[in-house]
């Protein structure tokens, strides 16, 4: 019995030991292969360096960008708060943030600033016309954003999908209208330059009559208002993509009312920035004309006006044309 036991133990040792050795050997191989596949992941130390000699303008730009980045998140948070019926504070604070966002955002490209500035450089206008046009652009901006989002919503529900760049007709139309107004301004500039004295007289009489005869002024400024209205429509009909995204977010999350409130506030902010630009252009032109007339007589004033008429018209034409050409060339996200 004992000898049988010993034989059994020996055989087990003979069979089992190689198996254990094999397992050990294979586990070594597997581990080494695994080790080769695993890559070390580390978080390196990073040194931050401030660029030397940063101009005030760059610092301001960085500040504006950072401000917008923070506010962008805040707008979403406040939209949710308004929807959840939180106190009036959320409503007013959210609106104020959206307004500030609009003011800062409008200082960037787009939103009709260049158009309004070029237009008022090339036109004899009053401050209130600048304010009126800015308000018109802001209102058209809101309406355009809502219409586009409404269209997007309808089409999305139909299952096709629409992007910001999927409304090319609006963009193309806007650029062509701007181009057309530029051509009209150029035509007028040519006409005025053929008989500059008559135009100045006309403007002087017109300005004088403003103070005394309200009815008369209506008759004269009517054409300007129509032209200004078309300009505002053209400049504002391409909605701010930021406002469209906010509105789309509102629709997607079923927050139409806060979305509308915040987009309206944002557009009011955009309107304020545009009006600052427009009014600056008007005041600049008025001031320079006045100074030149005082210092160099009427001749200097006339030359300046004519030059600015052409400059404004050429700028408006270029804005319309270049925008249209780049619209044909470059797809937008």
């Amino acid at each position: 019995m004992n000898s049988l036991n010993k034989l059994f133990q020996k055989r087990i040792t003979i069979f089992i030991l190689p198996i254990i050795a094999n397992i050990f050997f294979f586990s070594l191989i597997v581990n080494s292969v695994k080790g080769q596949e695993e890559t070390t992941i580390s978080l390196p130390e990073v040194e931050f360096v401030e660029e030397e000699g940063i101009s005030f303008y760059v610092q301001l730009t960085d500040y504006l960008i950072n401000f917008q980045r923070r506010v962008n998140t805040e707008v979403a948070t406040h939209m949710k708060a308004i929807e959840m019926g939180e106190d009036l504070g959320a409503f007013f604070f959210g609106s104020a943030i959206a307004f500030a966002y609009g003011v800062v955002h409008a200082f960037g490209p787009g939103h009709g600033k260049f158009i309004i500035v070029s237009y008022f450089i090339g036109r004899e206008a009053r401050v209130r016309q600048g304010l009126l046009m800015a308000a018109q652009i802001a209102i058209v901006h809101v309406i355009a954003a809502i219409i586009i989002v409404w269209l997007a919503d309808v089409v999305l529900k139909a299952g096709f999908g629409i992007g910001l760049s999927d409304v090319p007709g609006v963009r193309a139309g806007s650029f062509l209208i701007i181009f057309g107004i530029g051509l009209y301004m150029l035509y007028q500039a040519v006409q005025i330059s053929l008989n500059p004295s008559a135009d100045i007289e006309n403007e002087h009489n017109h300005g004088h009559s403003h103070g005394h005869s309200h009815g008369h002024s209506h008759g004269h400024s009517h054409g300007g208002r129509v032209e200004g209205g078309i300009m505002a429509l053209a400049a504002g009909m391409v909605p701010c993509p930021g406002a469209v995204l906010v509105m789309l977010y509102a629709v997607a999350n079923d927050m139409i009312y806060p979305g509308f409130v915040l987009v309206f506030s944002m557009s009011a902010g955009i309107g304020l920035s545009i009006s600052i630009m427009g009014v600056s252009a008007i005041i600049a032109r008025q001031t320079v004309t006045r100074i030149l007339e005082k210092s160099g007589g009427r001749h200097g004033g006339i030359i300046f006006r004519l030059t600015m008429n052409y400059t404004g018209a050429i700028f408006v034409i270029l804005i319309g044309l270049i925008s249209f050409i780049s619209f044909l060339d470059v797809p937008i996200l």
Binding site: Y57, T61, L64, I65, Q68, R69, N72, V104, H105, F107, G108, P109, G110, K113, F114, V117, I121, C240, P241, G242, L245, M277, S280, A281, I283, A284, L333
Partner: peptide, 17 residues
């Protein structure tokens, strides 16, 4: 005025963050 307006055009207008 022209420079201020011109320079303001350049930056600070992203729509996607």
């Amino acid at each position: 005025c022209v420079c201020f307006v011109g320079r303001a055009y350049i930056y600070a207008n992203p729509d996607v963050w």
